[in-house]
Computed example of a mutant assay.
Amino acid sequence: MKAIFERRSIRKYLDIQISKENIELILKAGMSAPSAGNGQPWQFIVLNDKKMLYRIPEIHPNSHMLMKASHAIVVCGDMNRKNKFVEELWIQDCSAATENMLIMAQDLGLGAVWLGVYPMIEIVEKIKELLSLPEYIIPFSIISLGYPGETKDVLDRYDESRIHWNQW
């Protein structure tokens, strides 16, 4: 629970590489997320090539932290695995996977930030091209990862005024 309450978006990183073991733990956390009908409509692309990490900010205006990141993980929706009853549930499933990975990164002492990609179509198309994604794969989010080069205060975001019991 501590990792959930202390997780913050970290955009500054130290020049230290994350181990493959920690990347695998983050990916396992993502794949442990709930998904509609257990469809698990996700695919993950791990980026650690600095050339690739430098190219994404040319496409995504809010991703400059990637130039200092150790790794990034692109969370993608696999349209061949989407829910057969409600197709758009892949969005929720990929959101759950992304959040699980952010929490695991926090638990491992890493810094991370969620960069939204879908539904910004121009960014989606350029990321697809950059990563040579097949047509049925949609980039959903990018998680920037590194050892934190900044600290942020823990925030208490609990707001009782947003809670409604039984009806509005």
Results as ranks from 00 to 15, higher is better:
21 E>C: 11
99 E>L: 13
51 K>F: 09
43 Q>N: 12
149 G>E: 06
109 G>P: 05
147 Y>S: 05
166 N>Q: 15
45 I>V: 08
95 S>Q: 07
68 K>S: 05
166 N>H: 14
78 D>I: 04
81 R>I: 06
162 R>E: 13
22 N>H: 10
112 A>E: 00
73 I>W: 01
96 A>Q: 06
52 M>S: 09
28 K>N: 00
102 L>M: 09
160 E>F: 10
52 M>Y: 14
168 W>Y: 15
109 G>L: 11
122 E>Y: 10
116 G>E: 07
30 G>Y: 00
153 D>E: 12
66 L>D: 00
52 M>C: 09
43 Q>V: 10
22 N>Y: 07
70 S>N: 04
148 P>L: 05
57 P>D: 03
13 Y>I: 04
65 M>K: 13
53 L>D: 00
47 L>Y: 02
118 Y>R: 07
104 M>A: 02
12 K>F: 09
138 I>Q: 04
130 L>P: 01
4 I>D: 06
37 G>Q: 11
26 I>G: 00
39 G>A: 12
158 Y>H: 13
123 I>K: 02
116 G>L: 07
153 D>S: 14
91 I>H: 05
143 I>A: 00
75 V>L: 03
6 E>Q: 13
64 H>D: 07
62 N>I: 15
60 H>I: 08
65 M>C: 06
141 S>K: 01
94 C>F: 06
1 M>E: 14
96 A>G: 01
49 D>N: 11
10 I>M: 05
54 Y>F: 15
88 E>N: 14
52 M>Q: 11
30 G>L: 00
122 E>A: 09
145 L>Q: 00
7 R>G: 02
121 I>L: 15
79 M>S: 07
86 V>I: 14
